[in-house]
């Protein structure tokens, strides 16, 4: 069990209001509402194909729900593209790792600083003073993340050559480099062994504790979910079938049925 943690969970950061999303005939999400509070760890669970990833994709602007609305930091969003969501402080990782395979760990994480860099294209083309100073400053921030995630030894390795578990860690590093307010993690521990999972849990909780970053994660490992999350949303066939603190969810009969009904 996790040690008692001292954090403040604040007001609502993001509200998803009755969104529906379909692809042709396939209904990925139907009339789903929930909210995420500032500073909490919010989990989304559900059987395969339940619409969990689609939910994250709506939040960061990859998908645009046909109905419903998303309110972020008290502003109702109009249709937003992913880079705009990123500019508003939403960072994420992907279910199927999406790293820049040809680049080193360092460069990958550095891309996460993209939005924090301000010098314009001309200054960069000439590569003069301010642009260089900025590069150094961001390099330091990246080094701190590398240290935090304990991946100093692979700093220069092209990520395509890293084992799966480490790739996931680098991807987390890239998301952290943006210093996001809301961090979306799509199955951050999938395919990991127990030890790697424990490390990942520790990183997630540390990020949440130390930087107050709000986290919304999708995870299949129930032990992990119940352990680290403050509240859980359960989706099944694109509909919300449960929402509450882990203890409530564990006792929710609809949820139990949904999980027994599918084979894993």
């Amino acid at each position: 069990m996790s040690a008692p943690r001292t954090r403040t969970i604040g007001d609502t950061l993001l509200t998803v209001d009755r969104i529906s999303l379909s692809f042709g005939g396939v209904k990925a999400l139907t009339d789903v509402s929930f909210d995420i509070a500032k500073g909490e760890v919010r989990a989304i669970i559900g059987p395969n194909g339940a619409g969990k990833s689609s939910m994250l994709n709506c939040i960061n602007g990859f998908y645009h729900p046909q109905q419903g609305s998303i309110t972020y930091k008290s502003v109702k969003r109009s249709q937003m593209r992913p880079h705009e969501a990123a500019a508003q402080g939403i960072a994420r990782t992907f279910q199927n790792i999406a790293l820049f395979k040809g680049m080193s760990t360092l460069d990958n994480i550095m891309t996460g600083r993209n939005l924090r860099m301000k010098t314009g294209i001309l200054a960069q083309a000439l590569h003069f003073g301010p642009a260089r100073a900025e590069e150094i400053e961001h390099r330091l921030a990246v080094e701190r993340i590398i240290e935090f995630l304990e991946i100093e030894h692979i700093r220069k390795t092209p990520v395509g050559r890293l084992p799966y578990g480490l790739q996931k860690r680098v991807e987390l590093g890239r998301a952290l480099a943006a210093e996001p307010e809301l961090l979306l993690l799509d199955e951050p521990m999938a395919g990991m062994n127990i030890e790697e999972k424990q490390d990942m849990c520790r990183f997630i909780l540390d990020v949440n504790d130390e930087f107050g970053t709000t986290i919304c994660l999708i995870e299949h490992d129930m032990g992990v979910v119940m352990d680290i999350s403050d509240r859980v949303v359960v989706l099944d066939y694109g509909k919300k079938i449960g929402d509450g603190v882990p203890d409530e969810i564990k006792r929710n009969q609809t949820v139990i049925d949904a999980y027994l009904g599918v084979s894993h």
């Binding site: 992907f94 820049f100 460069d107 891309t111």
Partner: peptide, 23 residues
């Protein structure tokens, strides 16, 4: 340069590039 890095990022993975704020 940052633009250069962004460009290589886009060449590698469109979705990931967008997620770090590269239009």
């Amino acid at each position: 340069t940052r633009i250069g890095r962004a460009l290589r990022a886009v060449a590698d993975d469109h979705a990931a590039a967008q997620s770090v704020g590269i239009p």
